Amino acid sequence: MLCLTVLVPILGIIAAFGLAGLGDSTAANAAAAAARAASASDDPDTAQARGRQAALNSLGQAQRTCANSDIVIDTSGFPTQPGQPGTVTVRVDCTIPLAKLAVPGLPGSKTLTATRHSAVDRYVDRTGEGNAE
Results as ranks from 00 to 15, higher is better:
Thr127Pro: 04
Arg116Ile: 12
Pro107Leu: 12
Asp24Met: 11
Phe17Met: 10
Ser118His: 12
Glu129Cys: 00
Leu56Thr: 01
Asn29Leu: 12
Gln84Asn: 15
Ile10Arg: 02
Phe78Ser: 03
Ala20Ser: 14
His117Val: 14
Asp43Trp: 10
Ile10Pro: 03
Pro104Asp: 02
Met1Glu: 03
Gly108Met: 07
Ala114Asp: 04
Ala31Lys: 07
Lys110Ile: 14
Gly105Asp: 07
His117Ile: 12
Cys3Met: 14
Ala15Asn: 04
Leu101Met: 05
Thr127Asp: 05
Val72Met: 02
Asp93Leu: 04
Arg116Asp: 15
Ala102Asp: 03
Ala54Ser: 10
Ile96Tyr: 02
Ser76Gln: 03
Gly51Tyr: 02
Ala114Cys: 02
Ala28Met: 12
Phe17Lys: 00
Ala34Arg: 05
Pro107Ile: 08
Arg52His: 00
Arg126Pro: 11
Ala30Ile: 01
Thr113Asp: 00
Ala55Ser: 00
Thr80Glu: 13
Gly18Phe: 06
Arg36Ile: 07
Gly18Gln: 00
Asn57Leu: 10
Ala31Asn: 08
Arg116Gly: 09
Leu11Lys: 10
Phe78Gln: 08
Gly18Met: 01
Ala38Leu: 11
Asn29Ile: 00
Ala132Phe: 04
Arg126His: 15
Gly108His: 13
Leu19Asp: 04
Val103His: 01
Thr26Ser: 01
Pro82Trp: 09
Thr95Leu: 00
Ser118Ile: 01
Ala132Asn: 07
Gly105Ile: 09
Ala31Cys: 08
Asp43Met: 05
Thr127His: 03
Gly18Trp: 02
Ser118Gly: 13
Arg116Glu: 15
Ala38Trp: 00
Gly60His: 07
Thr65Ile: 07
Ala67Ser: 14
His117Met: 13
Gly108Val: 01
Arg91Met: 10
Asn29Phe: 04
Arg126Met: 12
Ser25Tyr: 03
Arg50Pro: 05
Ile73Gln: 04
Asp74Tyr: 09
Ala49Glu: 11
Asp121Lys: 03
Thr80His: 14
Pro82Gln: 12
Asp42Arg: 12
Gly21Val: 02
Ala40Met: 10
Leu101Ala: 06
Ala38Lys: 07
Ala31Tyr: 01
Gly51Ser: 09
Val6Ile: 15
Thr80Tyr: 10
Val8Trp: 09
Leu4Pro: 10
Ser69Trp: 10
Thr113Glu: 05
Thr65Cys: 02
Val90Lys: 05
Asn29Pro: 00
Thr5Glu: 03
Pro104Gln: 04
Leu101Tyr: 03
Leu11Ser: 13
Pro44Trp: 08
Ile71His: 00
Leu4Ile: 11
Gln48Ala: 12
Ala38Thr: 09
Gly130Ser: 05
Asp42Ala: 15
Thr75Tyr: 00
Asp125Ser: 12
Pro107Asn: 11
Arg126Gln: 13
Ala49Gly: 09
Pro97Asn: 09
Ser25Ala: 06
Pro9Met: 06
Asp125Glu: 13
Leu56Arg: 09
Leu56Ile: 10
Pro104Trp: 05
Gln53Ser: 07
Asp125Gly: 09
Ser109Trp: 07
Ser39Glu: 08
Arg64Gly: 13
Arg50Ala: 02
Cys3Pro: 11
Leu2Glu: 13
Thr87Pro: 08
Val90Ile: 08
Pro79Thr: 10
Cys66Thr: 01
Val90Asp: 02
Ala99Phe: 11
Cys3Gln: 13
Lys110Arg: 15
